[in-house]
Design a protein around this nucleic acid. Structure first.
Length: 581
RNA sequence: GGUCCCGUAGCUCAGUUGGAUAGAGCAGCCGCCUUCUAAGCGGCAUGUCGAGGGUUCGAAUCCUUCCGGGACCGCCA
């Protein structure tokens, strides 16, 4: 299915023959042998570095190995040309039937084209969003949500068993602030003047929470000391906030598998157990930290605290797990939570954090490393911020949240599909500009439109063909004779289609869903290019008036591209459009 | 001061995990656009890959030292 893997197997096989014949030493390590698309298409369809990486261990000149390998490979019907180039590259040109078969394969596989067994069904946990339940989600959360969800889709497509998980930070002081803020709105709902003091959440979104509190408690909580109502109001408000967050996530098309609560860890002994486990490894001790160099806080005073020896697992300084009043720091329950994930048997963990949590990465990795005995890898993706614009002007919109633009606002303005796609048009660790005007523009400058338009064009061809009585279901197209598909522009599209399974693996290996978006852009570009050539070379049009057989072959190619676009957009969580309006 | 991220064409960014002469889109320049496969098409030009050093057959990519920008740095989460 993966053409590159197939040709690599062919190369490995040929090397094996050479070893058997004595032209190559036996027992060479072939893992560094790669078969890749050459950077310059003029060099051929694929290139292998086999001769170069084997030269030293074999004690032979690269070109000697390459020549011998070339003559072996030339014997295979799939290879039309094998030539040695540069320092010892072996450039391969593949025979036309190979590319024709790519189209057939894609059509036969349909929604599974490009799926990989890379993950071998192993369980991987992707923790993302994890927004504090103190208000509606804002733009800052959107990108993390989209990246996490698309990454989950990608890993599932690549053969992993993925759990999407949200960690609810409902255990710290910020939810007390939420409760106090909601209480003021509750007083407001009862006709009193709210006192939104400094440090409380001022957003309008708490007004309905106040109303709901009034509906539930009437006037009973008025003029009561905080100790009486804090707990109830807190859990009531966080629950409502979580409902709102879940509904926001649905707007974006994100569905979590598991919600884990920080608060729920308290009182279960899980935190204590995690810390004791670390203590058993001599990784917990009472000690005094050095003040940070060059930036000593004014109120710095040496303090004895309970510390995690994270330096033993690659961190720069040890980290406190208890505050001076003896309560846990935020880090402690997070250690317990990650320990919990480790114990649930995940093969690998992934956290999607905001870039402002960068300072947290090493200690979290240290904790997971210690608690899993180095067995469970933790990959942390930091998501850079999104800058909003409209027609190039910085964009501010705050209907109800106070100072920030909410996820709801963004999706309402741009739509979930556009939002998701654009959020994936940058690598996670670089800042992203999001211009509401540009992302909705119907032009080539807009990658979402460009990819969707390619899909719409394919569908337009299919419609036209059906009207002309040509059977266009995938099964029929998969059986079409493609021997007439020989034009270089058509092969170029097939070549791009053949890259898809390889791209999925590369993207999954690096936990990099943005690669899918870039690939789709390139694929769309190939399709548009071929389509445009049809403008002045009618023989390249997908639909050939009055020639059903030729049309079917060309339509098979177009539809194969459509299959890949569908699968790719599926990973991004974007709905393919059938028609542009 | 330390840690992490970023630095690639005028601009916005990719760069297949170490491969060949570093790519794309904008903007720029030159043509085309009575074609219905519309929401433009084709072509041209563009580089100190922040700088120096190192590793090796080979570096934008790995190591190191600087420079510039950002984030973070014990009782916030």
């Amino acid at each position: 299915m993966n053409l590159f893997a197939e040709i690599r197997a062919l190369v490995v096989d040929a090397l094996g023959q050479m070893a058997a014949e004595g032209s190559l030493p036996a027992g060479l390590d072939l893992t560094p042998v790669a078969v890749e698309p050459p950077r310059d298409p003029a060099h051929g369809d694929m290139a292998t570095n086999a001769a170069m990486v084997l030269a030293k261990p074999a004690g032979l000149q690269p070109r000697v190995i390459a020549e011998a390998l070339a003559s072996k490979l030339s014997a295979d019907p799939r290879i039309s040309l094998a030539e040695v180039a540069g320092p010892g590259f072996l450039n391969l040109r593949l025979a036309l039937p190979v590319w024709q078969r790519v189209v057939t394969d894609a059509l036969q596989a349909g929604g599974t084209y490009g799926k990989s067994a890379l993950g071998q069904g192993q369980r991987v946990n992707v923790e993302f969003v994890s927004a504090n339940p103190t208000g509606p989600m804002h733009v800052g959360h959107v990108r993390g949500a989209v990246v996490g969800d698309a990454l989950s889709n990608l890993l599932a497509f690549a053969g992993w068993d993925v759990t999407r998980e949200y960690y609810i930070n409902d255990g710290g002081a910020q939810v007390d602030v939420l409760a106090r803020s909601a209480y003021e709105r509750y007083r407001e709902a009862n006709g009193l003047e709210p006192e939104i003091r400094e440090g409380l959440y001022p957003g309008d979104y708490l007004i309905p929470v106040g109303e709901a509190l009034k509906a539930k408690y009437g006037t009973r909580l008025l003029d009561q000391p905080e100790a009486v109502w804090l707990q109830d109001v807190r859990s009531f408000a966080t629950e409502l906030m979580m409902e709102e967050i879940k509904s926001d996530l649905r707007l974006l098309g994100v569905e979590m598998d598991v919600f884990s609560s920080e608060k729920a860890l308290y009182g279960t002994g899980e935190i204590e157990a995690a810390i004791e486990t670390l203590r058993g490894m001599d990784l917990i001790y009472e000690g005094v930290l050095e003040p940070p160099k060059g930036k000593e806080p004014d109120d710095w005073e040496p303090r004895v605290q309970t510390l995690f020896r994270s330096t033993a697992h690659g961190d720069d300084v040890d980290r406190p797990v208890k505050k001076s009043d003896g309560s846990w720091t935020y880090f402690a329950p997070d250690i317990a939570y990650h320990y919990n994930k480790v114990r649930r048997g995940f093969y690998a963990l992934i956290d999607i954090f905001g870039a402002d949590h960068g300072g947290y990465v090493k200690r979290m990795k240290a904790a997971v490393s210690a608690l899993s005995g180095g067995k469970v890898p933790l990959d942390i993706k930091l998501i850079q911020l999104v800058k909003l614009y409209k027609n190039g002007e910085p964009f501010k919109m705050s209907k109800r949240a106070g100072t920030f633009v909410t996820l709801h606002d963004v999706v309402e303005e741009a739509g979930a599909d556009v939002t998701r796609f654009i959020m994936l048009t940058r690598k996670n660790d670089v800042a992203l500009d999001f211009d509401f005007a540009k992302v909705l523009e119907q032009s080539k400058d807009n990658p979402v439109f460009y990819v969707q338009y390619a899909n719409a064009r394919i569908n337009s061809v299919l419609r036209k063909a059906r009207e002309a009585g040509i059977a266009c279901d995938d099964a029929t197209l998969a059986g079409v004779d493609l021997s007439g598909m020989t034009h270089e522009a058509e092969i170029a599209l097939a070549r791009k289609i053949a890259e898809w399974p390889r791209l999925v693996e590369i993207a999954a290996r690096g936990n990099e869903p943005h690669r899918v978006a870039f690939y789709l852009y390139e694929l769309a570009s190939e399709l548009h290019g071929l389509w445009n050539r049809g403008n002045y070379d009618p023989s390249l049009r997908f639909f050939q008036t009055g020639n059903a057989a030729t049309s079917a072959a060309k339509i098979a190619l177009a539809r194969a591209a459509g299959v890949v676009i569908g699968n790719g957009l599926g990973i991004l969580g974007v709905t393919p459009v059938e028609e542009m309006r």
